[in-house]
């Protein structure tokens, strides 16, 4: 997969194809650059895909660089643990990251940039 491939913007302008599930290692993440904040797209051990802003609510650490475990990612800077499903900080820490809706069609990943369900 070449990063320079032009991406199809869907007619309704909401769902954007960003790549395939095989572009992301299991228990890993990749980034999607946008005009706004960078988005981290995660793949869990059991092949579920989640997307959220690539900024930790603590001190903006790049969550895409963290360790993915279960439904969570641990931030690489100071080890906050964030739920991939809700974007909420786990345990004693308080805070949340905006998440984005993701749709899988076959192995293709679509992101909905408009839709950022409040966490």
């Amino acid at each position: 997969m070449n990063a320079a491939t032009p991406f199809t913007r869907l007619a309704d302008a909401e769902w954007v194809r960003v790549g395939t599930i095989d572009d992301i290692p299991r228990q890993g993440a990749r980034c999607v650059k946008t005009d706004g904040p960078t988005i981290a797209v995660f793949r869990t051990e059991d092949d579920r895909i989640f997307a959220m802003q690539d900024n930790c609510p603590h001190r903006q650490g790049p969550l895409s660089q963290g360790i993915v475990h279960g439904n969570c990612v641990t931030c690489p800077l100071h080890n906050w643990v964030l739920s991939l499903e809700t974007g909420l900080a786990q345990g004693a820490d308080e805070g949340s990251v905006p998440t984005y809706a993701v749709r899988l069609e076959g192995r293709t990943i679509h992101l909905n940039l408009q839709n950022s369900p409040a966490a």
Binding site: F7, G19, T38
Partner: peptide, 10 residues
């Protein structure tokens, strides 16, 4: 894959 974004939508 570690060193490149998956997509650039900017």
């Amino acid at each position: 894959h570690e060193f490149k974004p998956m997509a650039d939508l900017s």
